[in-house]
């Protein structure tokens, strides 16, 4: 959970306060109302810190919060909040749609008769960083893995050796955001029997 503040557990006198942060919008829960995804925050808080939920979202608290503002300002604030919420929702929708639409392509490219490299494209759409994934892939397969620019724009990860199937497995296991159907394997040349790289 992203709600825990790392506390310096000094044996003598840990004086720092422990602050709970909202798991949905990462702000301290009392600021959730400004986060734009109030509904989610409320759900999260109710589930994880019911006593705090009762305190922050009780009738009294809400009344106290709004009483200090003039009616006009209240209205404006409400309108603003509503707008923000809509915006956040739209953004999320868009994100989901993007994920549903985009594909990760794993391609085997022939380098030199029996030698292959594997290129991976389309990871950015899932919020992954090419550079980091490349590093992970390189570590996993103990091969070179680099990020190169594609002439048509964008970037691709080039991994030495034919490891397309392993990459698919690895990606599915490690980065759960990618649905299995969205991974595409492409082989450039129909050359059989090329041993799994190494």
């Amino acid at each position: 959970m992203a709600d825990t503040e790392v506390e310096h557990a000094l044996p003598s006198e840990p004086q720092s306060r422990h602050v709970v942060y909202c798991g949905a919008c990462s702000l301290p829960p009392e600021y959730c109302e400004f986060g734009g995804i109030v509904k989610k925050c409320q759900d999260w808080l109710q589930k994880n810190h019911p006593e705090m939920y009762d305190r922050l979202w009780s009738e009294d608290a809400l009344a106290a919060a709004t009483s200090t503002l003039s009616l006009d300002a209240q209205k404006r604030a409400e309108k603003d909040a509503h707008k923000k919420a809509l915006k956040a929702e739209a953004l999320e929708q868009k994100h989901l749609q993007q994920i549903a639409e985009s594909k990760v392509t794993i391609k085997r490219v022939e380098r030199n008769k029996r030698k292959f490299v594997t290129t991976v494209t389309g990871l950015e759409a899932f919020g992954l960083e090419n550079k980091k994934v490349a590093k992970d892939l390189g570590k996993k397969f103990a091969t070179g893995a680099s990020v190169t620019k594609v002439p048509s724009g964008g970037e691709e990860i080039v991994v030495q050796g034919d490891v397309s199937e392993e990459i698919e497995e690895f990606l599915l296991e490690k980065y759960k955001v990618i649905p299995e159907d969205n991974i595409e394997l492409v082989e450039d040349k129909k050359k059989k029997g090329a041993g799994a790289g190494g």
């Binding site: 503040e5 506390e7 004086q15 720092s16 306060r17 602050v19 301290p28 600021y31 400004f34 919060a65 200090t68 503002l69 300002a73 604030a77 603003d80 909040a81």
Partner: peptide
């Protein structure tokens, strides 16, 4: 801010009214 939350009393502070929060945020 995470540090401020841990040691809130150690920094010179000022306070804003409720109406200003949403603009600041």
């Amino acid at each position: 801010l995470r540090l401020v939350h841990r040691f809130p009393t150690c920094f010179p502070s000022i306070r804003i009214d409720r109406g200003a929060i949403r603009f600041v945020l």
